[in-house]
Each structure stands twice: as structure tokens, then as C-alpha cells.
């Protein structure tokens, strides 16, 4: 009979993977449209968590209000991020500037700069230590499912990740906003000439992606019970790895790869010390880049 220990590890891995997936969805959405890596996505996640924490300590509202607050901050942060770090470098004036690497690299650096500034600012205001989330708000009540023990947060995270994926698919394929997003991601100049407001479409993409990032942040804060300025870094890296493995612009691909990452990390701790489990993520990244340069789901899927 299968050892329940492995089932438990599998469940832990799945929930870990889901947390990476939450982050990877917004990350991949923004990459798919602009073709640039948004290094500040991790800080959006952190901002979402802090927004929730501040709300909790100030007014102790119901949990739904906490999440709505985090979403609002995420939307605001996404909007500002686009205006500050991306818009000034975007010039759709001709084919050459669209494909220019210099332009792509400048937004890479400007978003990195924003991420550093935000992280340091949070440290100045809140200090660099972990702040714990009040016990009442934690989402880690144990739940027994057959031989496996999960916590309520696992179900919430699974539900939210699934809702995000389905919602995003609905947005992209069934709504006119989604049609515009896909058109801009395919060919911004062509979209502009048929009356699409590319600027507004890009802002919308940032707002949606960042709301997802902020939601991931507050959920993780409530799940682990700790919020700190550098908390966005590791999930940011994992989301990046999942995006690259998934083929850069495939959202379902990124989610599947995030799950693979989570499961293999938790399985790896069975055999090596847990300090090495991050090696699994980077090892996967290197293997993917060597054997599947287009990612595991790269060529076959529609972009975005």
C-alpha cells in the first residue's frame, strides 16, 4: 500500500504550488501583453499583504473587507507602476522601436528600481522584522481528508487560484476588454489602427495582474501568519521560473509548472535537507532552458 507520508507530502506540494501559481498568473499576464518582465510584481504581492495587515490592525474588519482592501491597493499599485516604470519607455512609433532590446531592458531595470524603492520604503515604515498576523485571521485550521491533513487555507488558496484562472480565461476570451488585450499583445500597432486605445488596454492589464498579485500576497500573509518587506522575493523568483518553464506567455502553462515546482520541492525535502529544496526550482529552470528552449507549453498555445 502507498505510504500515506507521500500523500501528505504531495498535498503539501500541491498547496505550495498553488501559492506559486497565484503569483505566476498575474506575472505571466503582464509579460504576455508587454513582452517585458515586471520585476516589481513581488513588491505588489508584499504591498497587498501589508495593506491587509494595516487594515486588520487598524479596524479589525471582516476577512472579506481585508481582501477587498488588498485588491484596491493592488489596483492602485499596478496603475502607478505602469505610469512610473513602463509608460515613459514605451514608444509605439515604429516597428524598430517595438522590437528594440534597449527598450525592453530599460523597463526591466526601471521595474527593478521600483521594486527596490518599494521594499526599502516598507522597511523604513514597518521595519524589516516579520510582523505576525493576529490569530483570529489565520487560515490554518487543520482539516482531515482521508489519511492527509490539510488546513483551511489550502482550500481557500485552491479556490482563489481556480477562480482567478477561470475568471481570466473568461476575461480574455469572452469580453471585449480581453479581445483588446489579446490584440495589443499580438500587434500593438495593428490594434491602434483599428481604434483600440493601447494605453488604456495596457493599464487595464497591469491593474488586473497587480490585483491578482496583491490577492496572492494577503492570502499568503494569512496562510503563513507572517508579513515582512522581503516576503515577495522568493515567490517572485518561483513565479518567474514557472513562467519560463511554462513557455513565457502561456498562463495555464505557468500554473501547471508552478504545481510541478511545488510538488517536486516538497518531495525533495524527503530526500535532501529542506535548505536544498530551492535548488529543485533552479535545477528545473536550467533543464527546461536546455531541453525545451520554448518552455514546456510554449509553441502550442495561444499567447496570453
Amino acid at each position: 500500500m502507498f505510504d500515506p507520508y507521500y500523500l501528505q507530502q504531495l498535498a503539501i506540494g500541491l498547496s505550495l504550488g498553488m501559492t506559486y501559481a497565484l503569483m505566476a498568473i498575474g506575472f505571466t499576464l503582464i509579460f504576455g501583453v508587454l513582452n517585458v518582465v515586471n520585476f516589481a510584481h513581488g513588491e505588489i504581492y508584499t504591498l497587498g499583504a501589508f495593506a491587509g495587515l494595516v487594515l486588520i490592525s487598524a479596524t479589525a474588519p471582516p476577512i472579506v473587507a481585508v481582501i477587498l482592501g488588498a485588491l484596491a491597493i493592488g489596483a492602485l499599485a499596478g496603475f502607478s507602476l505602469e505610469r512610473i516604470a513602463f509608460k515613459p519607455f514605451r514608444r509605439f512609433t515604429d516597428e524598430a522601436s517595438l522590437k528594440s532590446r534597449a527598450m525592453r531592458e530599460s523597463t526591466l531595470l526601471s521595474s527593478l528600481a521600483v521594486s527596490i524603492v518599494v521594499r526599502e520604503a516598507l522597511e523604513i515604515v514597518f521595519g524589516s522584522q516579520m510582523r505576525s498576523v493576529p490569530f483570529d485571521y489565520l487560515i490554518n485550521t487543520p482539516v482531515r481528508v482521508g489519511p492527509v491533513i490539510l488546513v483551511t487555507g489550502d482550500f481557500i488558496i485552491f479556490g482563489v487560484a481556480a477562480a482567478m484562472l477561470i475568471g481570466l480565461q473568461y476575461l480574455l476570451t469572452r469580453t471585449r476588454v480581453g479581445l483588446a488585450i489579446r490584440a495589443v499583445s499580438n500587434n500593438p500597432l495593428g490594434a491602434k489602427y483599428v481604434g483600440i486605445d493601447t494605453d488604456r488596454t495596457i493599464i487595464t492589464t497591469f491593474v488586473v495582474g497587480s490585483m491578482m498579485g496583491a490577492a496572492a500576497g494577503i492570502l499568503m500573509g494569512l496562510y503563513y501568519g507572517a508579513v515582512f518587506p522581503a516576503m515577495g522575493f522568493t515567490p517572485g523568483i518561483k513565479a518567474f521560473v514557472a513562467m519560463v518553464m511554462g513557455g513565457l506567455s502561456s498562463i495555464p502553462g505557468a500554473v501547471i509548472c508552478a504545481l510541478i515546482l511545488g510538488i517536486s520541492e516538497s518531495m525533495a525535502t524527503t530526500f535532501v535537507s529542506s535548505g536544498w529544496s530551492d535548488m529543485v526550482a533552479y535545477g528545473f529552470l536550467i533543464l527546461t532552458l536546455i531541453f525545451f528552449p520554448n518552455g514546456l507549453f510554449g509553441a502550442r498555445r495561444e499567447r496570453v
Binding site: L179, A180, N186, N187, G190, G195, E302
Partner: peptide, 24 residues
């Protein structure tokens, strides 16, 4: 400047959407 990764139908409806602007 067609949208290569979208269906033919979606390509054309972008034109129709672009001409009928509306709020988010």
C-alpha cells in the same frame, strides 16, 4: 499587421470593437 495568434473571427471583431468604444 494581423493578430497572428487570434482566430480570424476575433481578428475582425477587434475592428468592430474598436469602432464601438464604451466604458470598461
Amino acid at each position: 499587421r494581423v493578430f497572428p495568434n487570434m482566430s480570424v473571427f476575433d481578428n475582425v471583431s477587434v475592428g468592430a470593437v474598436g469602432a464601438l468604444p464604451q466604458g470598461a
